[in-house]
Design a protein around this nucleic acid. Structure first.
Lengths: 205, 205
DNA sequence: TTACATACATACAAGAATGTAGGCAAATTA
DNA sequence: TAATTTGCCTACATTCTTGTATGTATGTAA
């Protein structure tokens, strides 16, 4: 078969992205060649180069598939004032993220690639900046919610929302890192939810 | 000059390790070739291969130069019961680590390499295990000190040393990661010490 | 002072990896 | 249905890397 319909082509594109993820995970981004990805996807380098300019283009395509949903979920869970109080909303957001990692192998693998299978140099240095910018965004939204919690009297009088935000932010970054690295699962993965609950409990009055 | 004395040779070895650090930092570990390192060190690949089997051998040599001192300092600061109370000892250890990062460019760069310029696959997967094992060691010692704090009545009655340990551990891992990634310094580096003090203040009764 | 080991430099062979250019048949459009 | 574009494959040409093998001059020990 040579030429495909548009739908078939899009399917090929997706297959290539999936293949890239699988190979990145095993070989690391740097050691992965376009040939590896092509073979894994069952096509040739020609097809890969047709759909993507180069490796980092492919990397970005892969990354988008987990980060766009993350932002959406964050807004929904954190900012929409439903029946939950602010601190519970934060707790739900953190637990929800862990839940996504548990449920979605794809997300799990992409996090793993970004954390321990990628070197942020040259073209990839910009990716790191995007990640940091994302983190700032998360921290910003967290702080909004902590400020709501303060207003609603959920916090100890001595606790400052900005400080609590940073503390929670760093805690969660650490948790994500260890969750991802703890492949065996016996150290952090099994007790991640409990760790979050404990962390939040420390700041309820 | 061809043949050197033992002292000269050791000097060459050190120069190669330093060169490797510098090149790893700029090009990432994977993209760094032995030729890059040799050139940076002012020698040829012959010299590099004489002193080190391959790149990961060099990587280990580089890593040792910061990790052995870390362990020592940890034991000194955390475990030696001097004039300080337990919670202060923990605070001093955390602040001390940040201080080392501030003072020692070498340490700073090696952390940066290990966190965002290295892919933990194949031969490097074992390095990640060592790091995790190191983390376990740190957590273990932290917990000992938190238990001392509990005995000495420094903690709230409701707080469990094991839980506080994990929370502090994850906070600090997150802090280290963000400290390293925050090259500009405006986000985390400048306020790292304050963040630690705030974190510890959350658990003093 | 004669061996031998050491500390490198140089040269070579072999295998990747990349990007591009050209080909080709089927899908799409006019 | 003719013309064009799309989606992909094949085939270079070129450039890196690696490991090793070999050369060699100098410390060093007997």
């Amino acid at each position: 078969m040579v030429r495909k319909t548009k739908e078939d082509a899009e399917l090929t594109r997706q297959r290539i992205i999936h293949a890239a993820r699988e190979v990145f995970l095993v070989r690391g981004v740097s050691r992965t060649t376009m040939e590896h990805i092509a073979t894994q996807a069952g096509v040739t380098r020609g097809a890969v180069y047709w759909h993507f300019d180069n490796k980092i283009d492919l990397f970005h395509a892969m990354r988008e598939q987990v980060f766009l949903p993350l932002i959406d979920r964050m807004d929904d869970t954190l900012l929409v004032e439903g029946s939950e109080d602010p601190l519970t909303r934060i707790e739900n957001f953190l637990c929800g993220t862990i839940q996504v990692l548990n449920d979605s192998m794809e997300t799990r693998q992409i996090y793993e690639i970004m954390m321990i299978k990628c070197e942020y140099v040259d073209e990839f240095a910009a990716v790191l900046q995007q990640i940091l910018s994302n983190c700032s965004g998360i921290a910003g939204k967290l702080q909004l919610v902590y400020e709501r919690a303060k207003v609603q009297g959920q916090l100890h009088a001595a606790h400052d929302p900005a400080q609590l935000t940073m503390d929670t932010h760093l805690f969660f970054i650490g948790l994500l890192h260890m969750w991802v690295k703890d492949i065996e699962g016996n150290q952090f993965r099994h007790q991640a939810i409990e760790l979050i609950k404990t962390h939040m409990q420390l700041r309820r009055r």
